[in-house]
């Protein structure tokens, strides 16, 4: 875990897993956010809680350029301001009704969300392409042990399994879990991609098994 900067980027999802017009929950170390992409492709991240009655916004829906809560349809723009309260169609919602938003970037096929104010851009992925994301019930140390390599301060771990280079982007989750984004060398064919997906399943199993035996401190 880095401690040197005022802010940092967390890789929360693959770009391909967030199509236009959808919202998904994304876990940051500090809590859950609602991550959404508008119909025209603009991406946004907000607190995962509608201020009206506390409903999780990641259960909501995206119509056009706004995110709406599933409970009462309260709608929010990308900047977090409330645009519509369906129970009162004639009312312009007061500016004070808003959700906290986070800076978000969509680069290298990964969606990154800012904690604090990061000094620079999200890290470059040098020739790697995202494959899939999965969650391990094991911490970073257990995964490093299973992979035989350490993650750098950005959570990037490069390893070679069965002759194949893999880059794992690790993001800490609550309750000792770790979100793993798996990247393969750009240009890998379908068979190599499927092999990589299976390799990481195996790696996760090893890390979890070690964690549950208490073998990893």
């Amino acid at each position: 875990m880095r401690s040197d900067t005022t802010g940092f980027w967390t890789p929360v999802a693959l770009s391909a897993d967030l199509p236009a017009g959808t919202v998904i929950p994304a876990r940051m170390a500090a809590g859950t956010i609602a991550l959404w992409r508008s119909q025209t492709g603009h991406i946004a991240a907000s607190a995962d809680r509608c201020p009206h009655r506390g409903m999780s916004l990641s259960h909501g829906f995206v119509r056009g350029e706004v995110l709406s809560c599933i409970y009462h349809g309260w709608s929010y723009g990308r900047a977090g301001n409330c645009l519509r309260i369906p129970a009162h169609p004639g009312l312009t919602p007061p500016d004070a009704i808003r959700v906290v938003t986070h800076d978000v970037r969509d680069t290298g096929g990964i969606v990154w969300v800012a904690s604090g104010i990061p000094a620079g851009d999200p890290p470059d992925l040098d020739g790697f392409t995202p494959l899939r994301s999965l969650t391990a019930d094991a911490d970073r140390a257990a995964l490093a042990l299973a992979a035989g390599a350490q993650a750098d301060e950005d959570g990037r771990l490069v390893t070679n399994i069965a002759g194949q280079d893999l880059c794992l982007l690790l993001a800490d989750q609550p309750e000792g879990r770790t979100l793993i984004h798996v990247l393969v060398r750009s240009g890998s064919d379908a068979a190599a991609r499927i092999a990589a997906s299976r390799s990481v399943e195996r790696l996760r199993r090893m890390a979890e098994s070690a964690s549950h035996k208490g073998g990893v401190q």
């Binding site: 995962d48 809680r49 201020p51 009206h52 009655r53 506390g54 409903m55 999780s56 259960h59 599933i70 409970y71 309260i85 129970a87 009162h88 009312l91 009704i97």
Partner: peptide, 24 residues
């Protein structure tokens, strides 16, 4: 039920600052 299980916090806030009601 799926609404009720996804409200945050799980307890009903009685502090008026926690949630924003309207005339409805």
């Amino acid at each position: 039920r799926s609404i009720l299980e996804n409200q945050i916090p799980r307890l009903l806030p009685l502090d008026p600052g926690m949630e924003i009601p309207t005339r409805a």
